[in-house]
Simulated scan of single mutants.
Amino acid sequence: MSIPNIWNHRKVADTSAKACEICYKPSTSVLVTPENKDFFYVCPSHLKDRGFCSPIIDHEAVAAKKKKEMDEEVERLKKEYEEKQRKKQEKDSKKNEDSEKSKDKEDKDSKDTKDTEKKDESKPNGKDKVEDKTSPKPEEEPRVFALQRTFYQQRLDRKRQAEMAKRNRERLSNPNYFPSVPKDLP
């Protein structure tokens, strides 16, 4: 009965916190085997320690996530470009209307529109920067770990000892385990 060396990181409620297996401080982080055969509480700081465990990285999931982010970025840039083109066409149409009215007004309006264009261009860029700063995506911590050899062997030994203790309790509770009193005379 060997347990695979794959441990999933789970969080429990603060009220369910128990002592860390390493440092005995209260912890809400639990490492669980995929089949829920074994579990133990551990501090999140120990999960970052390379001497205790190492993360198992799913390269396919990471590649898919990067591709999704790139697609979102491309869509965002396309929308920005289309919006700039639309604004440029509106300005061109305004200039055509102004040229029909008078040339003097056109010179004044073109200066005003250039000033407003500079202001308009600076405002959307400022808003984009603010949006980027307000919504930074926190990096996801790894959720699957492999224990180092010594810690994994300790877990196996504890599991074996628990099974042996259980078998011994069952044997002791069974009355046929002990020898019976002799019934014949010597």
Rank of each mutant, 00 (worst) to 15 (best):
S27T: 01
S27L: 01
N36V: 03
F39T: 00
Y41K: 03
H46E: 02
K48A: 13
D49M: 04
R50W: 05
R50D: 13
G51V: 01
G51E: 11
F52I: 02
P55A: 03
D58Q: 04
D58M: 01
H59I: 10
E60M: 07
E60Q: 14
E60G: 12
E60K: 11
A61T: 07
A61Y: 04
A61G: 04
A63F: 04
K67G: 06
K68S: 13
M70I: 14
D71I: 05
D71G: 03
E73F: 13
E73A: 13
E73C: 08
E75V: 10
E75H: 12
K78P: 00
E80L: 12
E80D: 08
E82Y: 14
Q85G: 05
K87D: 09
K87R: 15
K88G: 08
K88V: 06
E90G: 06
K95V: 07
K95Q: 07
N96V: 13
N96L: 13
K101S: 04
S102V: 06
S102D: 10
D104E: 14
D104S: 12
D104Y: 13
K108A: 07
K108R: 08
S110H: 07
S110E: 10
K111Y: 09
K111C: 09
K111F: 08
T113A: 14
K114M: 05
T116D: 14
T116S: 15
E117P: 00
E117S: 08
E117Y: 09
K118W: 04
D120S: 04
D120Q: 06
E121Q: 09
E121Y: 05
S122H: 12
K123H: 10
K123M: 09
K123Y: 11
P124K: 12
G126D: 09
G126R: 15
D128M: 07
K129M: 15
D132C: 04
K133I: 06
T134Y: 05
T134H: 05
S135C: 05
S135G: 04
P136G: 03
P138W: 03
E140K: 12
E141C: 05
R143I: 10
V144R: 03
L147A: 01
R149V: 11
